[in-house]
Simulated scan of single mutants.
Amino acid sequence: MAADRQPKEQRVEAVERALTLLEAFADGADRLSLAELAKQTGYYRSTILRLAASLQRMGYLHRDADGCYRLGPTLWRLGSQYQRAFRLADYIRPALVEISGETGESAAFYVREGDQRVVLYRVNSDRPTRHHIEEGSALPLDRGAGGRILTVHTSGDDEHADQIRAQGFYVSDGERSPEAGAVAVPVFGMNGEFIGALGVVGPRHRMGADNHRAIADLLLRHAEKIGAQLGGR
């Protein structure tokens, strides 16, 4: 019967294509040429030009004098509103500063967005040799300590899920980047709701096995404190 049928998913192709164009910057690229956008999206250059023109008018893209594109101020404004609405920054940022200060490495907080993890907040180490990524960068979900934590506490689709949940943290050694090692733990809020992943990442030669437990314990203490501040127990 017609009443039993599920409604079809409503989609607007032009909107999805425009958003795909913006997603081309998700890996942290500051500027992309028309050719680079075409390669990443698979769209014809003529299509990109039409989409980009609309995005420029709305402030989502900006085209420099040399023809390269970069993200526009509207995204910065919306991103700022998103972070304010979350109100996690008041609790997460101070923790990241302390964690980075104690370990000497970069500290970050990740959330899951679809099949990626997003660096929502980050404090980069001030050491000359460090692992550096900007806030807002999108990274793979299936590799790295933060990605593993997000996966097992959302979809659970990970062969090591039971072990990760049992030990309460995950250590990666060159999983996403061959030069980096990381440790991450889950953060829970009110009613045990999973909020995101808290992690430390640094060069592999400084993230050896002898440091893993100490870093994990530090992260777990901060995760528990953040959880309590968010209304958890």
Rank of each mutant, 00 (worst) to 15 (best):
E23Q: 12
H153Q: 07
A3C: 15
V15H: 10
G136L: 07
E105I: 04
A214I: 10
Q56L: 12
P7C: 01
V152E: 01
S100R: 02
A2G: 12
A35G: 15
L51D: 07
S177W: 05
G196Y: 00
A85N: 04
L78P: 02
F188I: 11
I99F: 04
V171R: 04
G232A: 10
S80H: 15
M58T: 11
A223K: 03
Q81P: 02
G104W: 07
L78V: 13
P140M: 00
G59S: 07
S80G: 11
E159M: 07
G28A: 02
W76F: 07
V123Q: 04
G147Y: 00
L49H: 08
L21M: 06
R70K: 14
G202P: 03
S80N: 13
E224S: 05
R84A: 15
R127W: 00
L51R: 15
V201G: 01
A18F: 11
Q116H: 11
I133L: 15
T129N: 14
H131M: 13
I99H: 00
D158H: 08
D64H: 11
T74R: 15
P73G: 01
S137C: 07
I48Q: 07
Q163L: 06
S54H: 13
H160A: 09
R143M: 05
R11Q: 07
L219S: 00
L21V: 15
I149V: 10
Q229R: 13
A35M: 05
T154R: 14
A89T: 08
V152Q: 03
E16M: 11
V200C: 03
G156Y: 13
R112K: 03
E193K: 12
G72R: 05
K39W: 04
A2M: 11
L34C: 01
R176T: 11
A35T: 09
G101S: 12
A35S: 14
G227P: 09
S46N: 13
